[in-house]
């Protein structure tokens, strides 16, 4: 897309790299439950940020607020410097429970975003086929979700989010339904795919290893009410092979440090 190059810094004062998503002073109450407390975060363009924290600390809530699916009680979300109040074409969501239409084939599910946008059928199916192939599901276009494994369903969810060409991908524990071997494979595939498309990704996970392996930036949240505990940048070179990364000293240190931080919440 040519407009990526022309999207010159709107705000010359901002540091490089430009922040495509900014979260300002977000708080969220569910009735009397205080889920998030004054969250301020920046998400640099083209980078992968992970939200990590104990269960119930508000990760899903924060992700859905960024997606525009939940209203914050206070604060605002900026996309490309503009305040947004709902879902938009710059963001696509990958759901933890897949959220596939059970009555639609893989092809229709992947093309669903374009179906809503009334893109002509032939065109949207062409594009959908391309991403079905990218996520390794070619041959399954005419299957229904109940005929797929959990990992395959999540790939459908990923393809559906990729095909609408949103700059920002929001993923809520995308690998939680996937077994360990497939999970690694899926992580590697995801990194490849994302690097090729220069996506900005905000990613929720429970796995420290996964967070360190895939992220440029890791946001550690404290237990309810969720606040930012710390932000970690593992700075791992991704030019080496996946196995080398997992043996890298920086990788192991980062995992250890995060574990030390999170452990105190368990007591």
């Amino acid at each position: 897309m040519s407009d990526v190059a022309t999207a010159a810094p709107l705000n010359p004062a901002s540091a490089t790299p430009e922040n495509i998503v900014e979260v300002r002073n977000i708080s969220k109450f569910y009735g009397s439950v205080h889920a998030l407390d004054k969250i301020n975060l920046s998400f640099p363009k083209g980078q992968m940020t992970t939200l990590l924290g104990p269960s119930g600390c508000g990760k899903t809530t924060l992700l859905k607020i960024i997606a525009g699916l939940l209203e914050p009680s206070d604060g605002e979300v900026l996309i490309n410097g503009k305040v947004v109040n709902g879902p938009g074409p710059e963001r696509a969501f990958v759901f933890q429970d897949f959220a596939l239409l059970p009555w639609a084939t893989v092809l229709r599910n992947v093309a669903f975003g374009m179906e809503l946008a009334k893109v002509p059928k032939a065109e949207r199916e062409d594009k959908a086929r391309h991403y079905i192939n990218e996520v390794g599901l070619s041959g399954f276009e005419d299957k229904y979700p109940h005929e797929l494994s959990g990992g395959m369903r999540q790939r459908v969810g990923l393809a559906r989010a990729m095909v609408v060409k949103a700059d920002v991908l929001l993923m809520d524990e995308p690998f939680s339904a996937v077994d360990e071997q497939n999970r690694r494979k899926f992580q590697e595939d995801l990194l490849h795919l994302l690097a090729a498309e220069n996506k900005t990704v905000i990613f929720v996970t429970h796995s420290i290893e996964e967070a360190v392996y895939v992220s440029d930036q890791i946001v550690l949240l404290s237990p309810r009410p969720g606040q930012i505990h710390s932000i970690i940048r593992p700075e791992i070179s991704r030019d080496t092979s996946p196995d080398d990364i997992r043996r890298d000293k920086k990788y192991l240190d980062a995992v250890e440090n995060i574990w030390t931080d999170l452990r105190k919440y368990l007591d």
Binding site: G68, L69, A92, F95, A99, F112, G113, L116, A117, V164
Partner: peptide
Amino acid sequence: ANPSLIQMCRSFQGT
């Protein structure tokens, strides 16, 4: 109706 599917539809800007 499955709330997750409804959110999914909204996230893709369905009317």
